[in-house]
């Protein structure tokens, strides 16, 4: 296509490297339990209940109900097993000299970078489930909600330390009120 910019990228195209620090390994168990509570558990329970009902009262329904249940249970199990692993491989964070950088997600993966000069507040949040596993979430807010960075699955001590360091680093950089 003439005149269009679809040419292969120049040889010197820089790449974005992943953030340096992984989250706490306990986050895997947290994500598994959360998945069990929100998606996997309810689906599995429903499937078991339906299968039992069919076995006891309507054996005739099994030929069409069986495949349906398999189609329900297999994705739920996959989610339960794969999601925490993928998340643990993806989730990472880094505090650079001028910006905060974090990556998260499992299916849709995101890498977000916000300069320290735009940081407005640093919050540390511990949900009830997170507390069980000794984990915490650090949220760095900027003037735009699309620029907020959330780092989940940190150890409690690590979260304190990180939010303190981000706060200190943001103090050093001249604030930008835009």
């Amino acid at each position: 296509m003439p005149g269009s910019g679809t040419a292969p990228p120049p040889a010197a195209a820089p790449a974005l490297r992943p953030p340096r620090h992984r989250v706490d390994p306990r986050a895997r168990r947290w994500w598994t339990v959360r998945a069990l509570l929100t998606v996997g558990g309810p689906v599995l329970l429903t499937a078991v209940a339906l299968a039992l009902c069919a076995l006891l009262f309507f054996p005739g329904a099994l030929p069409w109900l069986g495949p349906l249940l398999v189609a329900l249970v297999v994705p739920a199990l996959l989610h339960l097993v794969l999601m925490p692993r993928v998340r643990y491989a993806v989730h990472a964070w880094e505090l650079g000299g001028r910006a905060v950088y974090a990556s998260d997600g499992w299916y849709r993966q995101r890498r977000r970078i916000a300069p320290l000069s735009r940081v407005q507040t640093v919050d540390t949040v511990r949900g009830p489930l997170e507390r069980r596993f000794g984990l915490a979430t650090v949220t760095v807010t900027t003037a735009s909600t699309a620029g907020d960075i959330r780092i989940r699955g940190l150890s409690e001590a690590g979260a304190e330390e990180l939010s303190r360091r981000i706060g200190a680093a943001a103090q050093l950089i001249l604030g930008d009120t835009a």
Binding site: A12, P14, L16, R17, P19, A99, I113, P115
Partner: peptide, 25 residues
């Protein structure tokens, strides 16, 4: 492959310190 370079060029001072590979390649 082009996105990081574009982001760095469009709004300097955000992504640069997390970029690698420009020099080597």
């Amino acid at each position: 492959a082009r996105a990081p370079g574009f982001a760095a060029g469009a709004a300097p001072g955000i992504v640069e310190e997390f970029l690698v590979g420009a020099a080597e390649s």
